[in-house]
Computed example of a mutant assay.
Amino acid sequence: MYDVIVIGAGPAGMTAALYASRSNLKVLLIERGAPGGQMNNTAEVENYPGFTSIMGPELAYKMYEGVNQFGTVNAYGIVEEIIDHGTTKTVVCEDQSYEGKAVIIATGCVHRKLGVPGEDEFAGRGVSYCAVCDGAFFKGKHLFVIGGGDSAVEEGIYLTQFASKVTVVHRRDELRAQKIIQERAFANPKMEFYWNTVLEEITGDEIKVQGVQLKNVQTGEVTAESADGVFIYVGLDPLTEPFRKLGITNAQGWIETDQEMETKIPGIYAIGDVREKTLRQITTAVGEGGIAGQQVYQYLQELA
């Protein structure tokens, strides 16, 4: 029986595990991949206090080093559901179940797919959702980035160190990214922008991507262009399917909490990118992890 089970070892989950274990609680941290979450797919982090600039995987490693200093138990697992028994909870994984008095959900989210023809067919063969993972494969190539938010523009800038040209395709007539990021992009000679345009189809041969079909949403004109790769950044979907039965998610699947990070079920908390909120950053994830880790201690004190 653990005092608290943390599901997900991104910045939120790792911070929660750190705070809870430092309070002398028995903590289990379950992760289905490498610790760090989205940080492992982030090139350069420039807005995390204490570092003027640090690579995402390096920051993830530094956080993970701190997690284990107070006795957190680490486990690999893909969580299928949480069963609420009141004062205890069962976390059911594919091949094992764990018992805890409280649970902190920090499963994060994933990049949303467009659902256009060719997207699934060419996944890993020119279609990507991670510039850090795949950018180096496209040296001297022409790449298309779909989206207009922070992630799309930042990753587009990152890709220019490899690509000969990066074309950003956005359905509106202006970007949604922060102004400082926009300024960097507009000043980059390798970047160009297609406004009021959407991706209709990704084309290629049996080996790789070779082109895209684009549609102007104002004129309806469809054009075909050569492309060596397509990077898609059109939003995020929460990883909350295992928790839908609990009734703690909203219509879009995000988990709703109070300011103490507690859901409407006592003893179940949610933190980080999986929460219903406006800002999804490493700093906010860490802050929420600290709150949840401390609130679990208070919750268990009241149970005793």
Rank of each mutant, 00 (worst) to 15 (best):
G293R: 05
F144V: 11
A16G: 09
W254V: 04
A9G: 03
I265Q: 13
G147P: 00
L159Q: 14
F70K: 08
Q298V: 10
V222R: 15
L199V: 08
N41Q: 13
Q182F: 07
E154W: 03
G272T: 10
L143Q: 03
Q259I: 13
G149I: 04
M1P: 11
A106C: 06
Y98H: 06
G124H: 07
T52Q: 07
A20Q: 04
D173G: 09
I291Y: 01
A102R: 04
D3A: 08
L114D: 05
G100N: 00
E44K: 14
R172L: 07
R244Y: 07
G126D: 04
I232W: 09
V92E: 03
R22G: 13
R176S: 10
E94C: 01
E44Q: 12
V132R: 09
P266H: 00
V91R: 04
G220N: 13
V217T: 11
N47R: 09
L59P: 03
D258M: 10
Q252E: 08
E155V: 06
E206W: 00
C130M: 06
I291V: 15
V286E: 01
E192I: 01
M63L: 11
H170N: 11
S23F: 10
Y269T: 05
T249N: 06
G77D: 10
E262M: 13
A123L: 13
A20D: 06
R112M: 08
M14A: 08
H142V: 13
I54S: 02
D120S: 08
E81W: 01
T107Y: 07
Q259K: 12
R22E: 02
P35V: 02
E262S: 12
L279K: 11
A136N: 07
R171A: 13
N74E: 13
P35N: 08
V110G: 08
L28A: 08
T283A: 15
V286W: 01
A304V: 12
G229S: 02
P242I: 11
L214Y: 01
V166D: 04
S21N: 02
Q69D: 04
E46Y: 07
L114Y: 05
S128I: 10
V209P: 12
